[in-house]
Simulated scan of single mutants.
Amino acid sequence: MVRAKVNQDIDLTSYHDIWVIGEQREGKTHTVTIELIGEGRKLADKLKKKLIVVLAGNNIENNVNELLHYGVDKVYYLKHELLKHFSTEGITKAVTDLILEKKPEIVLVGATSLGRDIAPRIAGRIGTGLTADCTSLEIDLTDNKILQTRPAFGGNLMATIICPKNRPQMSTVRPGVMEKAKYSEEIRGEVEEIIPFLETNLIRTKLLQIIPLKKNEVNLTEAQIIVAGGRGLKSEKGFTVLKELADKLGGEIAASRAAVDSGWIDPHHQVGQTGTTVRPVIYIACGISGAIQHLAGMNESKYIIAINKDINAPIFKVCDYGIVGDLYEVIPNMIKWLENK
Results as ranks from 00 to 15, higher is better:
residue 161 I to R: 01
residue 337 W to N: 15
residue 146 I to K: 11
residue 226 I to G: 09
residue 316 F to A: 04
residue 242 L to W: 07
residue 109 V to Y: 13
residue 182 K to R: 11
residue 326 D to C: 06
residue 193 E to H: 07
residue 29 T to I: 15
residue 76 Y to V: 12
residue 1 M to P: 14
residue 287 G to H: 02
residue 57 G to N: 02
residue 181 A to I: 03
residue 197 F to K: 15
residue 300 E to F: 12
residue 99 I to V: 09
residue 21 I to D: 02
residue 268 H to F: 11
residue 119 A to E: 11
residue 17 D to Q: 02
residue 132 A to I: 07
residue 189 G to N: 10
residue 98 L to Q: 12
residue 317 K to V: 05
residue 243 K to W: 09
residue 250 G to R: 04
residue 209 Q to K: 15
residue 143 D to Q: 08
residue 135 T to F: 03
residue 83 L to G: 05
residue 172 T to A: 11
residue 43 L to T: 07
residue 189 G to P: 05
residue 290 G to V: 04
residue 222 E to K: 15
residue 193 E to V: 15
residue 216 N to R: 03
residue 269 H to K: 14
residue 13 T to F: 03
residue 202 L to M: 15
residue 12 L to M: 09
residue 264 W to P: 10
residue 32 V to T: 08
residue 62 N to R: 14
residue 189 G to Y: 07
residue 39 E to D: 09
residue 148 Q to D: 07
residue 127 G to S: 09
residue 335 I to K: 02
residue 60 I to T: 10
residue 71 G to N: 03
residue 213 L to K: 15
residue 125 R to T: 10
residue 128 T to F: 09
residue 278 V to Y: 09
residue 185 E to C: 01
residue 94 A to E: 06
residue 307 I to H: 04
residue 62 N to Q: 14
residue 29 T to V: 15
residue 274 T to P: 03
residue 200 T to I: 13
residue 10 I to D: 10
residue 165 K to N: 15
